[in-house]
């Protein structure tokens, strides 16, 4: 699959920041403004299926780790969310996986890249889900609607700063203050010198 690496790095120059892994786990990191073009080129080169599109909120990555564990936050300055487009090249006649590729892109604030729903129609729902859960907007979809939650819902629950049990009921008792959930760090026995 080194052909893919060459094609990407040569064809797009700086827009492809890195390319790592091999086989099933290969992943490319691209700039958000070029994401759509790269994805279009990949689709033309045979990646006919968008297997998944998801995001990760890296704002608390590596914080409050237990002693002895270190992890550096890979997020560049000013970025918090990383989108992952997971592509697959499926041989339609023999039903074999000819290649898998994850395309990551770090986005600035909550401004996502351009939509790819015209390339793969299932991106429509996936992008709506990402807006719903993370509050990431896609640049050419200004009026995007929520998918899983209701329009009255305020906030985006999969952001790390949204408390898991902050409820916003449509009917029924209002204001149940979110209870503090104990984290592992709270319960870890501490040795006081």
């Amino acid at each position: 699959m080194s052909g893919l690496r060459d094609a990407l790095t040569k064809g797009f120059g700086d827009a492809v920041l890195s390319f790592e892994g091999e086989g099933r786990d290969q992943a490319a990191l691209v700039k958000p403004e070029a994401a759509r073009d790269v994805l279009r080129a990949l689709k033309d080169s045979g990646f006919n299926m968008l297997v998944d599109l998801t995001a990760v909120d890296f704002s608390r990555y590596g914080q409050d780790l237990p002693p002895g564990v270190t992890a550096t936050n890979p997020a560049p300055e000013g970025s918090r969310f990383r989108l992952t487009y997971r592509l697959m090249k499926l041989g339609a006649t023999e039903g074999l996986v000819l290649g898998r590729l994850a395309v990551h892109c770090w986005i600035v604030d909550d401004r996502g890249p351009a939509s790819v729903k015209d390339l793969w129609p299932n991106a429509d729902w996936l992008e709506r889900e990402i807006w719903d859960m993370f509050g990431v907007k896609f640049s050419d979809r200004p009026g995007i609607k929520r998918l899983l939650l209701y329009e009255e819902f305020v906030g985006h629950p999969l952001r790390k700063d949204y408390p898991i049990n902050k409820r916003q009921p449509l009917i029924g008792p209002k204001d149940e203050r979110p209870r503090e959930r104990l984290t592992g760090a709270d319960l870890r026995p501490r040795i006081v010198p």
Binding site: D52, T54, R86, G184
Partner: peptide, 17 residues
């Protein structure tokens, strides 16, 4: 299952496809 870990006792993120 797309799993992100930062080394703690719980997943950092689990995405189910």
């Amino acid at each position: 299952f797309h799993i992100v870990s930062d080394g703690r006792d719980r997943p950092y993120r689990v995405r189910c496809r």
